[in-house]
Simulated scan of single mutants.
Amino acid sequence: MSLLWREVLPARPGVRGPKQTVSVDTVVRTGVAVADRDGYEKVSIRTVAAELGLRPMSLYTYVPSKEALIVLMVDAVAAEDAPISPELPVRERMSAIAGQVRTEILRHPWLLEVPPWRHVLGPGRQRRYERQLAAIDGIGLSDIDMDRVIAVLSEFATGNARMAVAAARSAHEMTDAQWWEVHGPLLQQVMPAEQFPISSRVGSAAGELHQAPGDPHGEFDFGLNRLLDGIESMIEVP
């Protein structure tokens, strides 16, 4: 916790450690770069130290463990969000909340592998929450409803981003056309249209449109608009 809030906590007088050749911020940025490039499982004290040209043991003078490094990395990427203009219409402000959460995960897919419950609150996450609340403050929601609106928008965006990331990874392994070429004949045999008439009809229509099992980007727009319709029914939109 003290590392997260290192910029605002007063320095402890009389406490000196070994002279540091890089900063904690540099260590965190390097960890993010490793995770973005190679994936969550590749982040380790040893890997980050090697990227910085340091010995693994020396990195412990900056962060005490991989777990602490991950906490700092999560908070650092949360600070990337741009402010949401209060001049925007309410619906666009709420849309921006969901859009920023989704964009963050698409930029940093390793976030999906970090346990989400009870993240340690650092300045990046806390300031983002403050900005999100400011975007919907004064529109007619109670404090509890404001918190829930942010949670619902964030959770929807996270779930959709998970599918978008999976689709992107799958495309690198096998195209949808290749997948159907391999598995299509068997599926036609075990799922005849006469036994599954509705799913065959709807699935064919969706597949024809998307040329893929799904369309995470279109589903995000569709789902978000339905969510915003429901939220707006609770408030008087200026």
Score class of each variant (00 low, 15 high):
residue 171 A to M: 01
residue 12 R to V: 15
residue 208 E to F: 03
residue 22 V to S: 09
residue 220 F to E: 04
residue 7 E to W: 01
residue 176 D to F: 15
residue 217 H to D: 15
residue 68 A to T: 13
residue 127 R to P: 03
residue 149 V to T: 15
residue 132 Q to F: 13
residue 88 L to M: 14
residue 41 E to D: 14
residue 146 M to Q: 15
residue 233 S to H: 09
residue 145 D to P: 04
residue 214 G to L: 07
residue 198 I to K: 07
residue 170 S to F: 05
residue 175 T to Q: 05
residue 78 A to N: 15
residue 69 L to E: 05
residue 114 V to M: 11
residue 174 M to P: 00
residue 69 L to H: 04
residue 211 Q to T: 02
residue 1 M to H: 13
residue 23 S to D: 01
residue 107 R to Y: 00
residue 179 W to G: 02
residue 158 T to S: 13
residue 62 Y to E: 03
residue 214 G to H: 06
residue 34 V to L: 07
residue 194 E to F: 01
residue 197 P to N: 04
residue 118 R to Q: 13
residue 100 Q to D: 09
residue 59 L to Y: 03
residue 16 R to H: 15
residue 103 T to Q: 13
residue 33 A to E: 09
residue 111 L to Q: 14
residue 8 V to Q: 12
residue 37 R to A: 08
residue 217 H to Q: 13
residue 202 V to L: 14
residue 27 V to N: 09
residue 133 L to H: 15
residue 200 S to K: 01
residue 119 H to W: 11
residue 60 Y to S: 06
residue 99 G to F: 04
residue 154 S to M: 00
residue 137 D to P: 01
residue 49 A to E: 02
residue 91 R to T: 09
residue 78 A to T: 12
residue 32 V to N: 08
residue 42 K to E: 09
residue 164 A to F: 06
residue 144 I to G: 06
residue 198 I to Q: 11
residue 195 Q to H: 10
residue 126 Q to T: 15
residue 169 R to A: 14
residue 103 T to W: 00
residue 6 R to W: 05
residue 28 V to R: 05
residue 70 I to Y: 02
residue 187 L to E: 00
residue 95 S to W: 00
residue 134 A to S: 09
residue 212 A to R: 09
residue 177 A to I: 11
residue 127 R to M: 13
residue 191 M to F: 12
residue 90 V to H: 08
residue 60 Y to E: 08
residue 82 A to Q: 14
residue 51 E to W: 01
residue 10 P to C: 07
residue 197 P to T: 05
residue 143 D to P: 06
residue 10 P to F: 10
residue 237 V to P: 03
residue 162 R to E: 14
residue 56 P to H: 06
residue 181 E to L: 05
residue 153 L to E: 02
residue 109 P to S: 11
residue 121 L to G: 06
residue 41 E to F: 01
residue 123 P to C: 08
residue 167 A to R: 14
residue 192 P to F: 02
residue 74 V to I: 10
residue 39 G to I: 07
residue 56 P to Q: 06
residue 192 P to W: 02
residue 196 F to Q: 03
residue 84 I to N: 11
residue 53 G to Q: 09
residue 139 I to M: 08
residue 157 A to Y: 05
residue 75 D to M: 07
residue 32 V to Y: 01
residue 145 D to H: 07
residue 175 T to I: 10
residue 182 V to P: 00
residue 66 K to P: 06
residue 52 L to Q: 03
residue 168 A to Y: 00
residue 39 G to R: 05
residue 230 G to W: 01
residue 204 S to K: 13
residue 168 A to S: 10
residue 85 S to G: 10
residue 83 P to R: 11
residue 37 R to V: 00
residue 23 S to W: 02
residue 198 I to A: 12
residue 145 D to F: 02
residue 223 G to S: 11
residue 110 W to P: 06
residue 70 I to E: 07
residue 99 G to E: 03
residue 84 I to V: 12
residue 151 A to L: 12
residue 113 E to Q: 15
residue 95 S to K: 10
residue 17 G to R: 14
residue 179 W to S: 12
residue 228 L to C: 06
residue 143 D to T: 12
residue 19 K to M: 09
